[in-house]
Design a protein around this nucleic acid. Structure first.
Lengths: 339, 339
DNA sequence: AATATAAATGACAGCGCTGTCAATTTGTTA
DNA sequence: TAACAAATTGACAGCGCTGTCATTTATATT
């Protein structure tokens, strides 16, 4: 019923091996032969059996997406981006959610890699930001691509997609400053996340660019969660000196800050401006709609995947490092400071 | 480096085939032998090679999750539920997002099934609600489990997990009625979704149970989106006769309704009660927090997957049909009707 | 035209496992 | 205890493909 390589070989009048060569884009096949085989492949609607490929070959045609992240929108975007690249390239995707804090996490991933024979891994934070961990993974003889926060290649270990959170945060903060804000609060996403650290740096940079002193009371240690936004905003707005704007480290925190503002009867943006980061779908659905920075996750993910697959195919030996800078999206949660 | 079945066989002093038997839980292996093999398996940290299994056996150890749904929370919950069952049972999961409206969708899925040799499919709406489509899929000799809306086995084609949207909607509506509401609006999720139809039925049933006449002006044809909630609520609240409560077909619509209420300066729940459906994470993050119905998607998904795998293993021939009824979660967006 | 060289193709083993069927061991009964 | 059935185990082929290496064919060189 389902055509095998054998069927194709017979129909085309060539050996199995030649069909294999054509299917793998190997050189040393005459164009005429290649065409003949391709025609037969099309005619029989032949598709190579992945299991057999994986078993027989030293190469593998599957990659895995390893993540530990509770953000559904982020995951879905990443996943879709990875998947679209995989489909284009004839790769299979395994998804592997796991707990980054588990102490046998390396072993777990090792087992997964060995059992599934994946050729590569797409790593997002926090995994991508642990060089030692990544090095251990590389010992397993899998390729890795990392998506992480920063504005320069962190090392030469793997290709990376860098997200310039620093620059984007600077832009958001500048936007607030341009609206006349000087007392700007910051609710962080947790020191274990490089993105949060980078965003904080960008925030500080913007202040200092404009000659505004950094007030430590305005910087709240939080985490990437709604609750953290609620608590952070409460804390900021019950201090003696209150900010007139809050830069939340992501949209979820911003949504929490919005919630807290409602609770405290603070009008947004009249009495307080709030900005988020990520441009997740619900940033358009809060009241008021959130000013934020758009992070093109889907694009980043498919880019990363293409980089990974190129590496697997050994089409390039260099460790490429691409950069994305999230762009400011101004909506209704930020406004001119009131006199 | 990575242990194979051969290594285990040698270490344990049995044949490869016996190890295979143990790994597959086949009968006709003496307990002593089984223990010995299991011990060796543990010692060598042996894990069967999926590719080899898939290639050699007639059985397959992978299933696919086929979906077309823009709701990130839903997808993630489903995916996690499916994945946890897969891990427990040693199955591999392929995810296959696709466009249900594409006219070659059957062909697309056929190719995926053939190429990946999946043994089963987890189908959610809209796929699960197309009997003819499902029948065609079954011809491919894959097992299928369906998750769908309803309160009775729709047919005997496949095992199903039914979600009793009718009952849950009735409960929500009753909750509104108990708060004294008689003029209750309904924003539907689209006639192409069985869940929306069922929820509408439940809403009507509740009204009729309480002797309240059904007012067609209160029933808005919408779709499962935020915008639809915004528009639906606007329409309802600009009519001559306005409802005092709105039952939105899902949380996203409810969030839209909330947004519209803000726009129109309508106080929630004092002037208008709004209820959602799904209990998605953001229903806890709106202002006010949404009253909704909790749909245990993760649980439903792992249940469904277990049913599918049992079917694949032919442990049962009967077409089991399980039922879930989402439970009312009362939060702050609904309240006593004001005089 | 004969030879050397490179390009193209094919034969064959084997990846790690399962299915089939035959061989062996164990338990049961007269 | 012999004879037989049932339970247990193993030998072997082969799933569909790729890697290796040998063979054939085309091209260049003298």
């Amino acid at each position: 019923m389902k055509a095998t390589i054998n069927d194709v070989a017979k129909h085309a009048g060539v050996s199995i091996k030649t069909v294999s060569r054509v299917m793998n884009n190997e050189p040393s096949v005459r164009q005429a032969t290649r065409d003949k085989v391709m025609a037969t492949v099309a005619e029989l609607n032949y598709q190579p059996n992945l299991a057999a490929r994986n078993l027989a070959g030293t190469k593998s045609y599957s990659i895995a997406y390893v993540y530990d992240n509770p953000n559904a929108y982020y995951i879905i975007d990443m996943q879709n981006g990875i998947l679209s690249a995989c489909r284009q390239q004839g790769f299979e995707l395994l998804i592997h959610p796991c707990n980054a804090e588990a102490d046998n996490i390396l072993e777990e991933i090792t087992n997964m890699v060995k059992q599934s024979r994946v050729a590569g891994l797409v790593l997002t934070p926090p995994f991508s930001e642990r060089p030692e961990f990544v090095k251990r993974i590389l010992e397993l003889d899998v390729k890795v691509v990392r998506i992480m926060s920063g504005n320069a290649a962190p090392d030469e270990i793997t290709p990376c997609i860098m997200v310039d959170d620093h620059q984007a945060a600077l832009t958001i903060t500048q936007h607030l400053i341009d609206y006349g804000h000087k007392n700007i609060g910051f609710i962080a996403g947790g020191a274990e996340h490089k993105s949060s650290i980078e965003r904080l740096q960008g925030y500080k940079q913007a202040l200092s660019n404009n000659g505004i002193a950094i007030n430590d009371d305005f910087i709240i240690e939080g985490e990437y969660s709604f609750e953290s936004g609620v608590n952070g905003a409460k804390q900021l707005m019950t201090q003696a000196e209150k900010p007139t704007a809050i830069f939340s480290c992501n949209d979820e925190i911003a949504a929490g800050a919005l919630f807290a503002a409602r609770l405290m009867n603070i009008a947004i943006p009249q009495q307080l401006s709030i900005a988020g980061f990520e441009n997740s779908p619900f940033s358009r659905q809060t009241w008021p709609r959130l000013t934020t920075a758009d992070q093109p996750n889907r694009q980043i993910a498919s880019d990363a995947t293409n980089l990974l697959i190129a590496q697997i195919r050994q089409q390039n030996t260099k460790q490429i490092c691409t950069q994305y800078t999230p762009e400011l999206v101004v909506r209704d949660s930020t406004g001119q400071v009131q006199a």
